[in-house]
C-alpha cells in the first residue's frame, strides 16, 4: 500500500509541476483530493485493510493529501504571478488608438487672454467692470473731453445709431471710465474689457468690431511714475519676463499728459516682422486723467488725480498665438476655434 501512496504522490506532483492553468490545478484537486479522487478512494478502502496497516495508510494518505493541497496553493500562487508577469508585457499595446468619438469644446482665444489679463489686474486690487456697447454720445465723447466738432470724432469712424448723434456704438472702452467714476468713491482701481466698434472696412489687420481693455486708477497722489510702474508690472506678468517699456507723447483728449506706451519686442533682439524692425511694439495709449474728465465723473480734480490706459486685446491674442488675420476672431469658423 505504501507503494501505492508513493505512486499517487509521484503522479500528483508530476501533474502539478506540469500545470499551466488554474483548471489544471483544479483537475489535480479533483482527481486526487476530491470526493471521487484517488486518495479518497484509498481512504475509503482503509476499513477493509489489515488493522495493522490501517494507521499507516490512513496517516500516509492524509499526509499526502496535505502535501498535495499545499503544492496546489503554491502552484496557484506561481501561476498567478506568471499571469501578472505576462500582463506586464507591452507587446500587444497600441498607444495610438483613438477613443470613441473624441470630442472636446473650446474657449475663444480672446476669452483665454482676457482671463489672463483680468486675473493679473485682479491680483493687483482692480475691480473688473462692464459697460454698454450701445452707448450715449455723452459717455463715449462729451464726458471724455471730446465735444461736438472735435476732430477726434472723425478719427474714430463712429457708427451712429440715430440721426441726432445721441446714440453710438461705443468706439472705445473709455466711456466706462465715466461710469466708474459716477458709481465708485475714490480711491479705486478698475479695468473694463469689452467689445468696441469702428466704421472700418475689415481686412487682415482691421475689423469694425474689436476688443479693448480700459484701466482707470484714481487716488490721492497718482503720478506718471505710477502709470509706468503699473503697466510694466502688468506686462512682466503677462509675458512672464522682464520687459522694457517706453513712454512717449501721445494724444488722447481725455488724458493730459497723454502717452503712447511701447513695449520692447518680446520676439526678437534685432528687429522682426512683428515689430516692423523697430524693436518696439505699440502697446497702449495712456495718460493722466484730464481734469475735465474727472469733473464730468463727479470727482474733484484738485483732491484726486488718476491715470487711465487702454489697449487692444485682439493684438495681444494675435501676438500670443501667432495669428495673422484679425478676421478669424469674429468669423465663427470651428476650424479656427477648435484649436484653442
Amino acid at each position: 500500500m505504501e507503494e501505492r501512496l508513493n505512486q499517487l504522490r509521484a503522479s500528483a506532483m508530476e501533474r502539478l509541476a506540469a500545470a499551466t492553468s488554474p483548471e489544471d490545478l483544479r483537475a489535480v484537486d479533483r482527481d486526487f483530493v476530491g470526493k471521487q479522487g484517488s486518495l479518497s478512494e484509498l481512504l475509503a478502502s482503509v476499513p477493509s485493510l489489515d488493522p495493522k496497516d490501517r494507521p499507516i495508510v490512513g496517516k500516509g494518505a492524509n499526509l499526502l493529501k496535505r502535501d498535495i493541497l499545499a503544492e496546489i496553493d503554491k502552484r496557484k500562487g506561481e501561476l498567478e504571478a506568471a499571469e501578472i508577469d505576462a500582463q506586464r508585457s507591452g507587446s500587444d499595446f497600441d498607444g495610438t488608438l483613438p477613443a470613441a468619438a473624441a470630442t472636446r469644446g473650446s474657449l475663444h482665444p480672446l476669452t483665454l487672454v482676457r482671463r489672463e489679463v483680468e486675473s493679473i489686474f485682479v491680483s493687483m486690487g482692480y475691480e473688473v467692470l462692464d459697460g454698454p456697447e450701445v452707448e450715449l454720445d455723452y459717455y463715449n465723447f462729451q464726458a471724455l473731453n471730446i465735444p461736438a466738432d472735435h476732430p477726434a470724432r472723425e478719427m474714430q469712424d463712429t457708427f451712429y445709431c440715430d440721426r441726432e448723434g445721441k446714440l453710438v456704438m461705443r468706439t472705445q472702452t473709455s466711456p466706462v471710465q465715466i461710469r466708474a467714476m459716477e458709481r465708485l468713491k475714490p480711491p479705486f482701481r478698475v479695468i473694463c474689457p469689452g467689445r468696441v466698434f469702428r466704421n472700418e472696412e475689415p481686412d487682415a489687420t482691421h475689423e469694425h468690431t474689436f476688443h479693448q481693455v480700459e484701466g482707470l486708477v484714481v487716488g490721492e497722489d497718482i503720478t506718471v511714475g505710477h502709470l509706468s510702474g503699473v503697466l510694466k508690472g502688468f506686462l512682466r506678468q503677462l509675458f512672464q519676463k522682464d520687459i522694457e517699456v517706453r513712454l512717449r507723447p501721445g494724444y488722447f483728449p481725455f488724458v493730459e499728459p497723454g502717452f503712447e506706451l511701447d513695449v520692447r519686442c518680446p520676439f526678437c533682439t534685432e528687429g522682426c516682422r512683428t515689430c516692423k524692425n523697430t524693436r518696439w511694439i505699440e502697446f497702449c495709449g495712456c495718460g493722466i486723467v484730464h481734469p475735465k474728465v474727472l469733473s464730468a465723473g463727479g470727482i474733484d480734480p484738485e483732491s484726486w488725480t488718476g491715470f487711465a490706459f487702454g489697449f487692444g486685446l485682439d493684438r495681444l491674442v494675435m501676438l500670443r498665438y501667432g495669428i495673422d488675420d484679425l478676421r478669424h476672431f469674429m468669423g465663427g469658423d470651428l476650424r479656427f476655434l477648435e484649436q484653442f
Binding site: G219, I222, H226, V230, G233, L247, P257
Partner: peptide, 11 residues
C-alpha cells in the same frame, strides 16, 4: 517721460 522713475501703487 523716460526719465520719470517708475513707482508702485500704495494705499
Amino acid at each position: 517721460y523716460d526719465n520719470i522713475p517708475e513707482r508702485r501703487l500704495t494705499g
